[in-house]
Design a protein around this nucleic acid. Structure first.
Lengths: 223, 223
DNA sequence: GCAGAACCGTACCGTACGGTACTTCAGAGG
DNA sequence: CCTCTGAAGTACCGTACGGTACGGTTCTGC
């Protein structure tokens, strides 16, 4: 949730500043508060510049998504050899991070915005924003989780034939209907750690191999 | 998905007719296509009548949700004693029905509408529509599933201490992130039956008791 | 110091919406 | 036949938005 506008690749610092204000307006007042005039006023720029930079209101929204996605970086630190306990720990950390990201103000506002624009009436580029959001916003998260469960499989702690299906199961166990409920205005859940723990318990029950956490380390691949 | 307007409790037949047209407009053109003038034209009524009947645009939207919810009835036929196979069958049927409902045009349109209105800028009644939608639209579904898994527990086929948590797990396993993805404009998933089967497999793996002669262990791999 | 570009602030235009008022029409009841 | 009630159709109003145009100002390169 940084507010820095240092090294964004796609936009100039000034433009990132404007995008930051746009996100602020969107978070605070919803889509209806994000008007070109309002943004120009809030960001102290001219509407003409907005249209020169982003071409269109659609372009502005897409730029906001890209800008926000560029701020969310997931650290993929691995290297250390996975034990059963370490795998569980990493999975729970992933679950907590996922829940935190999904319940964040900016994420919810952007998802509401994209969903509102994804109706059948939005012409050919109707779900363009939706596509953008799910790709930009999800890729990092997906990669992190996939790498994690793949590593778990590689060391023999997890067992599945379809990594994609396993990941979707993991996602469903963690998120359930919380995302939609929050999008509908329900206040965020009380205890994310508890939810994460339960989800990972279930996931491990489904996909872990039979070796008990204490007797592991004596596998065929032990060196 | 009936179009009959027979015995709605809250509104007159004429009003239900208008609400039906409103839903049609919303499904076909998204929120922006649902204007008071457009609805009056499409439903051959006057705007004045709209405001007399529903008071407000918000009231119209709420009436649409109530109207649609009144159309979705879930049959709760039980009575027959549950066997393991019967329980699985009912769970899979529930999963398929849930996925079908969530991917329905009207459901998606109404969810988009409510989500679009659920931003922080909508004052005190901001998430009013969202609350309405989740209550009216979900209660039937929730009750059906809860009754099902409760029955499963009562006859000793399922085992859990927190029915609510078990139901949320079931929901997450079935829906995963499909709902949000569809709300974002992604086309509905290809094979709901497959998804339902996998979800129920996982759910039963988690919550069934050991006393079942389950040599089947339906493989959730390729078909 | 100067020319040119970039940009801010603002005024402006066309449009479309929510909501209201007014006129017209159809039917029910005496 | 007359009247009254309710609803359709339409015209209208205020507002607000997206997008454009223009004058004034700051920054940059030479």
């Amino acid at each position: 949730m940084r507010t820095e506008t240092a090294d964004m690749p796609d936009f100039s610092p000034r433009q990132n500043e404007v995008l930051e204000q746009a996100l602020r307006l969107l978070v605070e007042g919803g889509e209806k508060a994000l008007t070109t005039s309002g943004l120009a006023r809030a960001a102290s720029c001219s509407k003409e510049s907005l249209y020169k930079w982003f071409g269109d209101r659609e372009g502005l929204l897409a730029a906001m998504i890209a800008h926000q996605a560029a701020k969310v970086r997931t650290f993929e630190r691995s290297g250390e050899r996975l034990s059963a306990e370490l795998l569980r720990e990493h999975l729970e950390l992933f679950a907590r991070d996922l829940l935190e990201v999904l319940s964040g103000d900016v994420s919810l506002a952007l998802n509401r915005l994209a969903i509102g624009q994804s109706g059948p009436g939005a012409g050919p580029n109707g779900s363009k924003l939706g596509k953008l959001l799910v790709e930009h916003g999800r890729r990092q998260i997906d990669r992190r989780a996939m790498a994690l469960i793949d590593a778990g499989k590689r060391v023999g702690l997890l067992r599945f034939d379809n990594a994609d299906a396993a990941y979707h199961t993991l996602y469903g166990l963690i998120v359930s209907d919380l995302h939609v409920r929050m999008l509908l205005g329900e206040p965020g859940l009380k205890d994310t750690a508890r939810q994460a723990e339960r989800a990972i318990d279930a996931f491990l029950s489904l996909y872990r191999t039979e070796k008990q956490p204490l007797e592991v380390l004596r596998t065929s691949s032990a060196r």
